[in-house]
Amino acid sequence: MTQPLVTVYIATHNRPQMLHRALQSVFAQSYPNIEIIVADDGSAPPAADTLAKTLTDEQRAKIKIVRNETPQGACHARNLALAAADGEFITGLDDDDAFAPQRVEELLDAFIDNEKKQPLACVAACITEVTAEGQITRQFDHGRITLNMMRHYNFIGNQVFTRTDYLRRVDGFDPEMPAMQDYDTWLRLMERFGPAIKLKSASYLWYTDHEQGRITKSTAKRARAFDIFLQKHRHTMSKNQLNSMRIIELKMKGQSLTGFEAVRRVNRYNYRSVVALLLQQYFGGLKRALGKIRYKG
């Protein structure tokens, strides 16, 4: 049986040690036919120079490097990789994260199997969060994800597996988005090509044991991103979906949610976000304590 080529792109900027870890996790994949594209967003020194010192000749031969000479943001770097991709399928990896060894194989199998049954935009998977204290397996929202669901909340997360042609046909990632880039892209992908499937397998290793260069820490960028996102997608949303957007807005802008507004806005798709926001506001210490119960090592 022919094994289709899968492109894995990694956008990076000035994080050579983390990039090395990310690449090693792709080299270790159980699926053999993988093209790796490193999209260097103006790193100094260039990623090509640092990789020449840390990788073997055989490993470097497996990598294609594209580069912005000056930093232009992760979306622009990802789009460079998308333009250079030769794979029939494509998926992404953040340079500070890693893949479990079976991830690409599981995603490809799930995409092909489910596409036989219905049109499909993409496949995703759950995550293992790696913190300074240990690991947390986060397996919420697995199963079939509809467009209606996605207009309430980003049920998919930060990475998908899809056909390269699909991602190109929705023009990739929007460089004008200062945050929420993934949510915006997956929503456009699903509007064009159908629902998504999210696997229960927690095969994406999300490292939160560091804070280096995290855009999500900037309230100003998050607030501006939400306003752009809502302007782009508001016309497609129902009243209930706009209620869910209001909960996201309060979180992104660091604003308070009152009990009255919580009751007025809550619905079956946003209740976890409502509860999490209220816990953070009124019982922040309790929420952190409950979270530690889920650490596994």
Rank of each mutant, 00 (worst) to 15 (best):
T2C: 00
A11S: 04
Q17M: 05
A22H: 00
L23P: 00
N33V: 02
I34R: 03
I37K: 11
V38Y: 11
V38L: 12
A48W: 00
T50W: 11
L55Y: 04
D57M: 01
R60Y: 08
C75A: 15
C75F: 01
H76T: 15
E88C: 03
E88I: 05
T91K: 03
V104S: 02
E105G: 04
E105R: 06
E105H: 07
A110P: 03
L147D: 06
N148Q: 12
M150Y: 04
I156H: 00
N158C: 09
D165T: 01
D165Q: 02
G172C: 07
P178E: 03
A179N: 15
Q181D: 10
D182N: 08
L189K: 01
R192C: 13
A196R: 09
K198F: 06
K198R: 06
S203W: 02
L205H: 12
E211K: 02
G213N: 07
I215S: 07
K221G: 04
A223G: 07
A225Q: 00
A225G: 02
H235M: 10
Q241A: 08
L242T: 09
M245C: 10
K251S: 15
M252R: 14
M252C: 14
S256A: 14
G259A: 10
Y269M: 13
S273Q: 06
Q280W: 05
Q281I: 00
R294Y: 14
